[in-house]
Design a protein around this nucleic acid. Sequence first.
DNA 1: ACTGTTTACGGAGACCGTAAGTATC
DNA 2: GATACTTACGGTCTCCGTAAACAGT
Lengths: 297, 297
Amino acid sequence: VETRDLRSLLEVVRTGSFTAAASHLGYTQSAISQQIASLEAQVGRPLLHRRPVRPTPAGQRLAEHAARILLRLDVAQQELEHLGRTALQLRVAACPLAGPHLLAAALRDLRAVNPALQVTVTALSSPRAIEALAGGEVDLAMVDGVTAPGNPLELVEAGLMRAAPLAEISLVVALASGHALGGRATLDLETLVDAPWITAPALAGGAVGPDLLSGYRPSSSGSLRYEGTDVMTLLALVAAGHGLALLPMGACGSAPGIHAIAVGSPDLVHRTEILGLSTVSGVALQLLEALRVRSEL
Amino acid sequence: VETRDLRSLLEVVRTGSFTAAASHLGYTQSAISQQIASLEAQVGRPLLHRRPVRPTPAGQRLAEHAARILLRLDVAQQELEHLGRTALQLRVAACPLAGPHLLAAALRDLRAVNPALQVTVTALSSPRAIEALAGGEVDLAMVDGVTAPGNPLELVEAGLMRAAPLAEISLVVALASGHALGGRATLDLETLVDAPWITAPALAGGAVGPDLLSGYRPSSSGSLRYEGTDVMTLLALVAAGHGLALLPMGACGSAPGIHAIAVGSPDLVHRTEILGLSTVSGVALQLLEALRVRSEL
DNA sequence: ACTGTTTACGGAGACCGTAAGTATC
DNA sequence: GATACTTACGGTCTCCGTAAACAGT
């Protein structure tokens, strides 16, 4: 089994089409067809249903492994490319909820020392930030998610990248002021499973463990999905009564029409981590250190 | 970059020889040479020093990634092979410190229900148990290691295998009775960094995180290394005054000449987990459940 | 001089593209 | 009948083995 075949399988599963996968990868659809056929011969069972193109259970599982394998391969190649290089440029991916003040302060320190440094900050959701890191588009990525206190995010495989915790902030439920639940001092998420949540996968949704996700972020009826990355927009949706949102304390600020209530149980926090390639060097390393010093975690 | 090249690189790094790697993989050494040359051309830098054959920093890093990639590939293939198969046979790998009474009791339940079941138990160190699982030699693996309470072992990549915690047992330092430290009620590992530890990598050594490993299990002067898997032998070495050993409470039993002292700080435990392929089925699943019920974790 | 890696070269085979075939909507 | 995947077939190029050259020990 070679990586080329895995890449093709993954692309077919993602797009649901041999033709689309072929054009994305620069092959003809005939080549893709042959590669999939070869893979199926090697593992001795069908991997895809045709017409429509959907993965079989075996195909789904293999595609999941393939995604991890190819991600690691990309990371390995990025690491080798940047090995021992001293950067004059720093590209950071940050998700909107990932403690912007922390990043801003650390960057200020860094630019004071090294004024010539070219800095680029990009707003990306956590999953996309990891892909950007693996693709060499950024040097560092700030990622966030919800976990139990003290537990790392379940975002990347152990050892794939270097991760350092930056902050843990307790959670609040944001709801429209005047909401029936507005009087409570704390709220338990268990009682809100069937509430009309606004799911915002680009805002910390990607890092929630599958068990948490299924328990506390149901895609149940009546829920609204916000795919943007702007917190203000999300708050406006909440204020307008479209539903509840789970946010780190402080993200609501003094937004109008919003009331924030602390989460009582379960004991979860919004955690921010910074990720870099394991061979991170130069300026990226300095920023990592600066953030680590500030974070006190 | 294809998996064939990665496999060759890894084997060359492991054996330190093109010739040996070739014979292990069923190639001629010429083929290996060409594959390595191709890889070096692709990444644009040398991966190996020749004569003697040792990895460059880049080669070392790539080999580490390759090991993970190939392990995952093996696991994926095993999963597909066993998908939907109901086993009449159960092969379990267990490390000596991984709660043998738990396994024994669970197996007794299982054989009571299914007397025809063919059971094989193999004693393997945790890293070898994982390889055996990936190679299809066993269906389940009990693994152990030292972590902070409540934290999973850092043995495998997230999502590679299904892991369930079985037990967490506090640690003791085993020393020869009559040892100068024998009077203490508890011991702090920080004060014992330079003590003559007996390192036993096959007995829970593999699962200790690198940071713990470097802090509390130094390969400093005077230390002794036991590569076997038999606890009694290790205890005999301790009793004979060859050094200290870090063990889960209870492993010493009433061994003669041994005195066990609880570890005061840091707050670490000996943790046992059970691993299976993510698609584990049939009898293996039953045993998993039986163990999970008993473990109360 | 011997052991072990690199280079040269040739053949077998993998792999992809073109194009025709086939099944499903 | 159109769209989308499969199969057939041929050319190219990769890849490995044999064998000779080469470099350390």
